[in-house]
């Protein structure tokens, strides 16, 4: 027997199925974050008891965990601020690593935005064969995985004599092709009439750039800045390879090495580390959507 359902009913079913899939997907994505936050309120003992097996290699001589398997626990046995207290008040190392992250990421973001804006302006304003070749090179470079450029980065850093210093991370960071590409796409959408009107009004290139182009690209700049910040806030490979001194490592490196370190504090550290990125995202959420949409829109 064949079921004859109404059009409306079918649509409702379709919606319900989509909702279920979306819900499951959302749950999968949000679960690690929820787990991190809830586990940050556990005591170190409880963390060791549940995730001790994970750090067995680190404590082979001193087995201090109970469960042989990993226990994904969402509800702490006893809500405790011990981890936060330890991280914020008794562990200057983590705070220092946090500031290491800030010291690396902030200059990269700021200078990259500045440089990218200027570069993108050039690409959008001037056309010619050379520009096309350079822009193509930028695109090629952008498409390459970071790990491919790591070796040349290392060699250049060594040649420049900045290997082992923060400049070895900051300088390649500043000259990233991604934001140039994205901003070029945005700036090309600005109608030429705006520039011509400004020029008729007697504005120079610098004036046009700062007073016409930049305000029009503000949301895109912010969204690009946010993406760049989050990208570099999570960097792991660069510090590991380009920095010698562990004291200069950002906090992201510590979190990547969680199974060999202080697993009892990792969740609180992760939560603390999450806050700036989260706040920035909340701050620039609209710009981010807007900027990405704008850059992907119809070329003007």
């Amino acid at each position: 027997m064949k079921l004859h359902l109404g059009r409306r009913t079918r649509r409702n079913i379709h919606t319900a199925v989509l909702f279920v899939f979306a819900f499951i997907a959302a749950l999968l994505f949000i679960m690690p974050t929820v787990l991190t936050i809830s586990n940050s309120f556990m005591t170190e003992t409880e963390i060791n008891a549940n995730y001790g097996a994970m750090i067995e290699s680190a404590s082979a001589d001193k087995k201090n965990y109970i469960s042989e398997d990993l226990n994904l626990k969402f509800i702490p046995d006893k809500v405790s601020f011990e981890q936060f207290s330890t991280v914020l008040f008794k562990s200057p190392d983590y705070l220092l690593k946090f500031w290491n992250s800030v010291i690396l990421v902030v200059p990269i973001t700021v200078f990259q935005l500045l440089l990218a804006a200027v570069t993108a302006y050039g690409f959008s304003r001037y056309r010619g064969k050379v520009r096309e070749i350079i822009f193509f090179a930028y695109i090629i470079l952008m498409l390459m995985p970071y790990q491919v450029t790591l070796v040349p980065n290392y060699m250049v850093s060594k040649w420049l004599g900045i290997l082992g210093t923060r400049w070895a991370i900051i300088l390649p960071g500043i000259f990233s092709p991604f934001s140039v590409y994205l901003l070029t796409k945005v700036m090309r959408r600005i109608p030429k009439a705006y520039y011509e009107a400004a020029r008729l009004d007697g504005a120079g290139e610098v004036q046009i750039f700062f007073q016409i182009c930049m305000p029009l690209c503000r949301s895109s700049m912010l969204s690009v800045g946010l993406l760049v910040f989050i990208d570099y806030w999570n960097m792991v490979e660069q510090p590991l390879i380009l920095l010698d001194d562990e004291t200069q490592y950002p906090l992201s490196v510590f979190l990547s090495q969680i199974n060999t370190g202080d697993v009892g504090l990792a969740f609180a550290v992760a939560v603390v580390y999450m806050i700036p990125a989260l706040l920035l995202f909340l701050y620039g959420e609209e710009y981010l959507v807007e900027g990405i949409t704008y850059s992907g829109g119809v070329k003007g």
Binding site: L88, F89, K90, P92, L95, L96
Partner: peptide, 9 residues
């Protein structure tokens, strides 16, 4: 906190 971290510790 960073500034006073050593002191607190």
């Amino acid at each position: 906190l960073t500034f006073f971290s050593n002191t607190i510790l």
